[in-house]
Nucleic acid binder design. Structure first.
Lengths: 209, 209
DNA sequence: ACTTGAGGAATGAATATTCATTCCTTTTCC
DNA sequence: GGAAAAGGAATGAATATTCATTCCTCAAGT
């Protein structure tokens, strides 16, 4: 054993020490997100995932019952993180318009800085998993959607928001923002501070009374 | 041979006559769209497709080099049909605002009446195929996008449309419409004539000066 | 009018591949 | 030493694609 193989041995030792329970799960999640965001669900076989994550194929199944469960949990992770980000400084007591702008800017900031999270959620939403999910969400609003609904109702009461169904409010308010973020991430446009503001503002124009 | 088996024989004869070249291809396309729209790309194995289309497995490969090519050509078919619909009565010489409303209403009408086409294109756009496709489209605008671009430029000249990049114009103008159609098709909302008008009108509010 | 046979369309069983999942072995940790 | 974790080769089901064969049509020959 020469100096090189010895230090390699130490490296492995260290890596394994660090990579205990929590870290392996994290590693799998991180890698799965990267791969799926770039190649899609069906472009990321479990074998590839285990290889890139540096774990055995069987190990994945210690943490996730099967691929479907992995995919859904991955989505929940992102959703939870975004929700936390949104709620951190949410201006609960401020006027409707201000809350609206806050949400809009949060979406843009968060996902521009986490393009993988964005591409993952987009894939998820537009897959069989997503449809089922969306149905639940609309019927039984939770988390960030719940706040949006409160916002919508407050806006309707105060007559600052148009008389439209909640669902259409979501569409008018957030669809252009999401699409714009996608275009930014794919490199079709660059969202600077001015443009971000202009987009959120335009969305507000489309829902305000 | 009784009367029934004889007429059945004629029916087969006729069917075979009719089901020549063009018709087989049509049958494959139609069936593939139905299946994929409902089950997704990966929920429609070629064996199922050939069974439902009433053709041999090998026959599909006489018309389409492989599954990927089939998927892409299917998209082109839809795109072509929509383009034709949009152009049929396009009010070229009328004011920008009127053209905008025409396009918005066309999108809603067309896809509400062809939910399979809609679900197919949505799946396509949000898959690895779609990204590549979108890139080409934005760089080298053709068909309906070309008309939208002309509209945008005319609107900018006349100062009736905001000073924003073309891509963002697309996002503001069409994202909410597409999302609303999706919600209608999935049954989350019902778009009556009033609501359709209100949506297109709101989109106009968001891009107009 | 009837037969023959060439051309090519259609078929679907067989093949090759891909992939999620399992299972047994090795390693790590206490 | 033994339990828990990790590894990764082996498995078998699912799937796209191929290809040898059949079937159909129609034109030519008698």
């Amino acid at each position: 054993m020469n100096i090189h193989s010895f230090s390699f041995f130490l490296f492995l030792k260290k890596k394994n020490k660090i990579m205990s329970k929590i870290d392996k799960r994290e590693e799998i999640i991180k890698t799965a997100m990267e791969l799926i965001a770039e190649q899609g669900f069906h472009g990321t076989p479990m074998a590839l995932l285990s290889e890139k994550a540096g774990v055995g194929a069987g190990t994945i199944y210690r943490y996730f019952e099967n691929k479907d469960v992995l995919i859904k949990e991955l989505y929940n992770e992102i959703d939870k993180k975004f929700k936390a980000f949104l709620m951190e400084n949410y201006p609960h007591e401020r006027p409707v318009r201000e809350c609206f702008f806050y949400i809009g800017k949060c979406i843009i900031e968060y996902f521009i800085n986490k393009p993988l999270d964005f591409r993952y959620t987009e894939q998820f939403h537009n897959s069989p998993y997503g449809i089922e999910f969306r149905r639940n969400k609309l019927i039984n609003l939770t988390g960030e959607d719940y706040f949006c609904r409160i916002l919508f109702e407050k806006g309707r009461e105060q007559q600052v928001i148009k008389t439209i169904p909640l669902v259409i409010f979501f569409d008018l308010a957030f669809a252009p923002i999401i699409w714009a973020v996608r275009d930014h991430i794919l490199g079709f446009v660059t969202l600077d501070e001015d443009l971000k503001m202009q987009i959120v503002s335009s969305c507000w124009d489309s829902v305000k009374m």
